[in-house]
Amino acid sequence: MSQGIVQVENLNLAYKGLRAVQNVSFQIKSGEILAIIGQNGSGKTSTVECIEGLRKPDSGLVQVFGKDPWLHRSEIYKEMGIQLQEVEYPSKIRVEEQCRLFASFYERPADWDLLLTQLGLDKKRKQPIHKLSGGEKQRLSILLSLMGRPKLLVLDELTTGLDPEVRQNMWISFENIRKNGVAIIMVSHYLDEVEALADKILYLEKGKQQFFGTQQGFREYVKSLIPQNEWKDNYSLEKLYLMIAPKTTGLTMEGIL
């Protein structure tokens, strides 16, 4: 039987005068992949930071492995791997040194030597991190999130900066990880990625939860919002999302010429 890993009920968070997250509720079980989608500033990162115990919610219930992450952060991190959206490492540290350092944080660290090879970083192990490309830094970030052999992975913008081939390989990797019972929460702007991986979708808009459920449920949700003559069964998730997402104005040549 699947075990509940994360439970969030009526989560509220405000900072800098902004209600970043309003009454968000969802849950995820082991072996499930949840994708959190929405525009920039919709509250995706704030939501995952509450799950990670990095932000204290104003109200609501957040439980990870049955514990409050804000109060039991270091305990929870023994079983939770995290990839943050924006992060840097000490610039002069070398790739293998960073891996060794992170490995020392866990009682039973992953075989990072093997992971370096699998992620195509084996030739970069002596390289200082500041000399890595954006994609290589991203792969290192993913490696470090796996260091503690986690049961829950929280990945904020998993494949940003990766080339298409590496992205596809990454999808296969995370599919395999999920098959081993690891629950994954991913924040993503790539809807093809969400379509390929996610069992469940949480859609946020201006901090408010618009939808939580399965991919099929999301299709039904979009169908209910748009005129029936605009609907096609074979629409991609990205197309569906664009049909309901708030419209933004594009760049015009008037401002340039």
């Binding site: 990670e52 990095l54 952060r73 270091s74 305990e75 991190y77 023994k78 995290i82 943050l84 924006e86 992060v87 840097e88 490492y89 000490p90 992170f102 944080f105 866990y106 503690g148």
Partner: peptide
Amino acid sequence: NCKEKKIYKRFDATPVG
């Protein structure tokens, strides 16, 4: 430097803090 580049935040997201 570590605070501005969110290096501490990354360490905070490990059992070590």
